[in-house]
Amino acid sequence: MTAHEDLFTEIKAGYPKLEKDRAQVEPYLTLKVLAKDVAAFFAFLKDTLGFDYLDMVTAVDWKGPVNRLGYITEPNPNPFLPDGATPQVQQAPAAPNVAYRESFEVVYLASALSRGRKVMVKAEVPRNSPNLPSLAGLYKTADWQEREVYDLLGVTFDGHPNLKKILTPDFIQGHPLRKDYVHQKDRYDD
């Protein structure tokens, strides 16, 4: 834990408006930055502290448990139960202390390979206007990873050179990893 504190103090010394995230991602130091500052913050991390390797870009939709409509009827089928028995698990219970909210959390993991350090960075964007600066200029690996987040969750990265769908086919409407996504029947159903 002290290693986390050291890293936090070191980053905070160069970038004062910074705080730890409430939900720390095991086992890394997790920081929270404002969405509009993401590019500036990573430029600082890369140039000053040697975080030159971007491991991962992804996002989480915090709207609440997933909408099963249209693509799954029985969430936890158990073929060994006798007829008429109650299923073991019916529906995921709503967890009391999870902060569901109308926003996406974009999650980055960056490494300083030479010094053996990794840091998680989170930025929150509202669901109705999910925009934040792109990192594709700083790290080329962000190119496809941001396209994937855009395709599956609909988060728009401003300044991305080529922001278009990458995994889902052209005829898919909407962004499948959003929690309220409802599958539209197409010619591949049934």
Binding site: V25, D55, M56, T58, V60, D61, P65, P75, N76, V89, A92, P93, A95, P96, N97, V98, Y100, V107, L109
Partner: peptide, 19 residues
């Protein structure tokens, strides 16, 4: 190969991302 896993206390992962 990395896995980012979020749990909200339910019986399935709230979010799983594969690096």
């Amino acid at each position: 190969l990395g896995i980012y896993l979020v749990s909200d206390g339910g019986f399935s992962p709230y979010r799983m991302h594969v690096r």
